[in-house]
Design a protein around this nucleic acid. Sequence first.
DNA 1: TCTATTGATTAGAGCGCTCTAATCTTGTAG
DNA 2: CTACAAGATTAGAGCGCTCTAATCAATAGA
Lengths: 339, 339
Amino acid sequence: MRPTMEDVAARAGVSRALVSLVMRNSPKVSDVRRAAVLRAAEELGYQPHVMARSLASRTSTVLGVMVNDLRNAFFADVVEGLDAAAQAAGFDLVLNTGGRSPAREGNALRSLLSFRPAGVILLSPVVPASAIEAAARQCPVVLVSRTSRASGVDTVNDDGEAGSALAVDHLAGLGHRRIAHLDGGGAAGAAQRRRGFQAAMRRHGLEPIVVRSEHTDTAGEKSVRELLATYSRAELPTGLVAGNDFNAVGAISALEEAGLRVPEDVSVVGYDNTSLAALRHLSLTTVDQPRTEMGRLAFEALVERVRGERTEPVRHLLHPSLVVRATTAGFSATGGAPR
Amino acid sequence: MRPTMEDVAARAGVSRALVSLVMRNSPKVSDVRRAAVLRAAEELGYQPHVMARSLASRTSTVLGVMVNDLRNAFFADVVEGLDAAAQAAGFDLVLNTGGRSPAREGNALRSLLSFRPAGVILLSPVVPASAIEAAARQCPVVLVSRTSRASGVDTVNDDGEAGSALAVDHLAGLGHRRIAHLDGGGAAGAAQRRRGFQAAMRRHGLEPIVVRSEHTDTAGEKSVRELLATYSRAELPTGLVAGNDFNAVGAISALEEAGLRVPEDVSVVGYDNTSLAALRHLSLTTVDQPRTEMGRLAFEALVERVRGERTEPVRHLLHPSLVVRATTAGFSATGGAPR
DNA sequence: TCTATTGATTAGAGCGCTCTAATCTTGTAG
DNA sequence: CTACAAGATTAGAGCGCTCTAATCAATAGA
């Protein structure tokens, strides 16, 4: 059996309570005793039992984290940011996946709550709002990539509208007038990206063209083929704002297949700045979201609630940035693509 | 305050012990009482407190998981597999990242152990063997993507030698004779892949060509340029076994840049079957490791130890499979590439 | 010398649960 | 009608810790 506080106390010749104080770095312990306790603990290889501690102190250092899909690099990055912040502050992560199914997410959430965590962070959950509000009655809840009106719930989102606007501003600034958006359909965040695209286009006095697509490369190919079938070569959009990076890659393939060059004939902007986009071969201009930062902010929002420093909900809306690479270039009406 | 067992017991008019039995689905509870308890629990919104349960029962349903880098899709997949198996069996994951630094991993590991977990799973840890053995003295330990001789430690690895052999067999079967390997250098698993390549080449009576590289796309480009500078066009290897998918992408870019077609002039095989490889645009032939399966096996190895069903260490060596896509094609000495 | 006062230490209850052993019900056989 | 086994229920101790309140030691002030 692993040593307990009692064992350490016996070996150091003090009481259990004193050992407890030492373990928690209490200032009201004499140096002599502290040293003795520390030595005894060292010799026995003693380590405090977090669960017992949590039970006795009625506090928790556990943060429940539910990710609906870890394979998605976006969430993996957020979790990394979360973990870094949590570790630094002495919190531990209990992690679950929900598999994008409300039923499984419900189980996952219940499972997290049974730890009586200090708080819970849900990454892009698909459970109904009522389930989230129920959770918020038990402990602070932070939502990432999902909005909520509940007062016990903080949210951290990337500003998808701003991201699309960034892409449009970039293309418009390069002289493009006919710009199309490959819409992500029902995918998370797609609606915002579409709205941002439309608003930005109107701001530039341009007519927004929206093509129904999905967040996959094959959908990107398909959408571009539709575009090619719909428009004459002279009227074809010269700028494409894809729903995400995968979609952009598909779009580029279809363009090249049709004999169009990127970026000479058509400029393409992706979204997400995945490892894909950074490949030299592709060098995709894309919109980058501060993923690790989002994890950190989610943690901080939670901790503020835990410490009782804040009761008002906070709604973080993070600003994405544009990473300009090689798939976008200037366009002039004369047809040539200046370099 | 959230309701406790005592509250449920009072409301149902029974003892706390009876509630405990019901919560654990004990068969020795009458149907009447069980129903009453369940109803009371439902009405109060009672949920068992896992930590208290764990403390009292001297058992744990917590599995500690240390990932050295979640951004790596490989580990994210393994964790998904792990989580699925754990959830199904009623276990919970406490997750940590070690950031590829022995010191930080040490802290992370200590933190996991302070939960007194049922077991610990380390994904590609870089801590010294002594630290792993020390952990194994406290609870069962399973290593993924790392070997160990310790008897309290189980391991789950992918057979990197077999993977490279698969790639070589495929190319040799297509008629290729001059095949080069772009070596991953010090990256995890690179040494095995290299050994497997060399052994397989010799088995086919071919001379192994190994080019020093890294697991990045830029390194892949660089290595191919070296290859092009070293060999005359007639003597250039016609088959390339890249260190991983990123490396393969770089290699392909450099080949195309040099006016060589893939797969008509040179066939390329990647490794890892990342989302990259599946892109239609690329359609990379690559070696797939059963990542989710590895997570599941790691979980099962742990559970067997926890249940005391096994004390002998187990060493899983998983067989990768080849995913043939469009970057490999037949080669005949006459120069043409039959299709 | 005696009492405050301050700081260091400890006793003991209790966190929410499980588990063993004891107690209470029945049903059934003698 | 009694005895007893089998099943259902409960009392109570204890898991490893924290926390409050009490105790103890040592110094200072009167």
